[in-house]
Each structure stands twice: as structure tokens, then as C-alpha cells.
Amino acid sequence: MSSGNSGSAGGDAMVSGTDYNATGMVPCSMGSGQPTTNCNFGVKREGNGSGMVTITKSDGRTRTIYFENGRATGYDQSQADRGAFRASKESDLYIIRIGDERYEIPEAVINGG
């Protein structure tokens, strides 16, 4: 995970040349039975476990997952999206499922550290 060194209004560093507090890769899978691969992400932190994680899928489209107070609460749903949003946490890892999509987001992504 990359972090920048120029400050933002919230006191969290920004990655140079981006609007993100950190960037990196997270494990992801785009369909049932599909192998897990790595997807690029950028996170905008709002503090207290809140913020947005934007993930770039293998086809170049993005998916944004919203967090509030340390809980994954939703995503950037469009009319084309099918399937339910489900979120769980195992130790320090958020497991996010949106239909057949699956994302594994470490707690440090949203909280920093």
C-alpha cells in the first residue's frame, strides 16, 4: 500500500498526483468460480473508520465501496448491478460480496496504518 506525504484537510497524507490517501492492491474475484486475482484500489479516508474505497476491476470499470464507523455499508450501485450487497469481517479483513463479485479489504485500508 502506498501513502503520500502531502497533507489533506483531514490530516491524512495524500498519494502524490491522486485524490487518494492510499493506493495499492486487494484480492478480488469478478464471478462465481472465477479465480482470485489482485485489483488496484484507492481510498479516500474520512476518519473514524469512514470513507470510500474505489477498486479498478480487470475490465477497467470501477467499483466504490462505502464505509461508515468501521462497517462496510454499501456501494455505487447502478441499474446493471445484480445481486445483493453482503459484508462481513474476519479478524482485520473485510469480505465484501456484491452479487458474484468478491473483494477482500484489509482494515488498515480504511483506518490507515
Rank of each mutant, 00 (worst) to 15 (best):
T62L: 10
M52K: 03
S29R: 02
G113N: 14
G51Y: 07
I98H: 03
G17K: 06
F41K: 07
G113F: 04
N69E: 13
Q79D: 14
T62G: 06
G42K: 06
A80H: 07
I105M: 09
G60H: 11
V15Y: 00
S16N: 08
L93G: 02
D100A: 07
D12E: 08
S8T: 11
V26P: 10
R102L: 14
A84L: 09
S78L: 13
G10I: 13
G99Y: 04
V26T: 08
T36P: 03
S32C: 03
V43G: 11
E104V: 00
Q34N: 07
P35G: 11
N38M: 13
M1L: 06
R45P: 06
G47C: 14
S50H: 02
I105H: 10
D92R: 15
Q77P: 02
D92M: 04
N48C: 08
N38G: 06
D12G: 02
R61S: 15
V43K: 12
A87M: 09
T37D: 05
S3G: 07
N48W: 09
F41L: 07
Q79S: 15
Y94I: 03
N5I: 02
Q77G: 05
I55H: 12
G99C: 05
Y75N: 08
S78N: 10
T62N: 11
S6E: 07
R63S: 13
R71G: 04
I98S: 01
Y75K: 12
E90K: 10
E68Y: 12
D81A: 00
R45T: 06
S88G: 10
E90S: 12
E101N: 14
G10E: 12
Y103I: 03
G60K: 11
R71Q: 15
T23P: 10
L93F: 00
S50M: 04
S6K: 08
T62C: 01
R97W: 01
A22N: 14
G33H: 07
G4I: 02
G49M: 05
A9K: 15
D59K: 02
M30D: 15
G4K: 04
P106I: 05
L93R: 13
F41S: 07
K89R: 15
N5G: 09
D19M: 12
M1F: 11
D19V: 13
F41P: 04
G113K: 10
I98W: 01
S8M: 08
S8V: 05
T23K: 15
Q34E: 13
